[in-house]
């Protein structure tokens, strides 16, 4: 079950009118149980891709399958198996929450026996128990979002597609929605788009970055972070006493597992009256962790103290900016 391909996208392309393609030959697969973060700057094609996956729009070229059904040729089957929350959470404002969820159950053919149980479950999961009798138009944005989410999961879909589910919410609400997504992601396949990077690190098992309609990265959040710097880098800070002229740069370069050392702070390691401290960025050879060696070398050296030894992980922000700006030009 866990490695069943739930979403299969193959050279998917969408051109609106005669302009540039909004989505340009994107391919990826999503397996059951994955929570996929769909990242990209505004206008990159995230929403368009999702609209095609939900079979709201037809692809110009290429194809997409959800749970083995083609989104164009077999769209009702696809629609049966997905839950979808569009951007901006469109809901019927003149209905109460309960009326709305019952309408969704009607449209989605949730049979009468299971209906009460399912409704109770999503109401609890989304925390809307005390809002059931309220008109949707009177709810705050946060609660509307939860109703939107409840609507998307009430029929227990195999695939959940959420377009910017946390936009416009306050930090507490974001955290709660994320918890719900995570909980659902344990059993179902989830795709959600966002341009908040922290969200991806917090919730996703996999990330896809698209920019200008093209897929520019695909991997786990950690993978992508590593990719941006090439190899793991380590920040080393060394302190020394006055009158010591041993150059730590030289010392570090002698260590075996190290590929490259760069001094970072501009003051450098020069003779001066102040107590000295200098930072270096060390790039290790692949597969080697040189931290032990570094510590030993510095400790045994004359009059030098190791102040800091921190493995650096490039933040997803770095990756994102790097990938989406180089591609854009």
């Amino acid at each position: 079950m866990t490695d069943k391909v739930m979403i299969h996208v193959e050279r998917l392309t969408k051109v609106y009118g005669h302009g540039r393609p909004a989505v340009d030959a994107i391919s990826f697969d999503v397996r059951a149980g994955e929570v996929l973060g769909f990242l990209g700057p505004n206008g990159a094609g995230k929403t368009t891709t999702m609209k095609i996956l939900t079979s709201f729009l037809a692809p110009t070229a290429g194809r997409a399958q959800v749970a083995g059904h083609d989104v164009y040729d077999d769209s009702v089957e696809v629609r049966r198996r997905i839950g979808y929350l569009p951007e901006d959470t469109p809901l019927y404002k003149d209905m109460t929450v309960l009326e709305y969820l019952e309408f969704i159950c009607d449209v989605r053919d949730v049979d009468k026996e299971h209906r009460r149980g399912r409704l109770r479950r999503v109401v609890e999961q989304c925390g809307i128990g005390d809002k059931l009798g309220k008109l949707i138009g009177e709810l705050s944005k946060g609660f509307r979002q939860r109703v939107g989410l409840a609507q998307a999961i009430v029929h227990e879909p195999e695939v959940l597609i959420l377009d910017e589910p946390t936009s416009g919410l306050d930090p507490n609400q974001i955290a709660e929605i994320r918890e719900v997504i995570k909980a659902i992601g344990q059993e179902k396949t989830v795709i959600f788009s966002t341009h908040i990077l922290g969200e991806v690190q917090a919730t996703c098992s996999r990330v896809i970055i698209i920019s200008d309609g093209k897929l520019v990265a695909d991997g786990t959040p950690d993978d992508l972070a590593r990719k941006s710097t090439g190899a793991a880098s380590i920040l080393v800070e060394i302190g020394g006493k006055r009158g010591n002229d041993t150059d730590p740069l030289g010392l570090l370069r002698q260590i075996d597992g190290i590929e490259e050392v760069k001094a970072i702070n501009s003051t450098g390691w020069s003779l001066s009256d102040r107590p000295r401290a200098a930072q270096f960025r060390v790039v290790a050879k692949s597969g080697v962790d040189p931290r032990g060696d570094i510590a030993r070398v510095i400790a045994t050296a004359n009059d030098m103290d190791l102040l800091q030894l921190t493995p650096e992980k490039a933040s997803l922000e770095d990756v994102f900016r790097k990938l989406t700006t180089t591609q854009g030009a």
Binding site: K51, T54, S55, F56, V76, R79, R80, I82, Y84, P86, D88, P90, L91, Y92, K93, I104, V107, R108, D109, Q151
Partner: peptide, 14 residues
Amino acid sequence: REGTLELLLTMPVT
């Protein structure tokens, strides 16, 4: 206008 059409058209109704 409200965008609910999009949601409705992604449900299993023709």
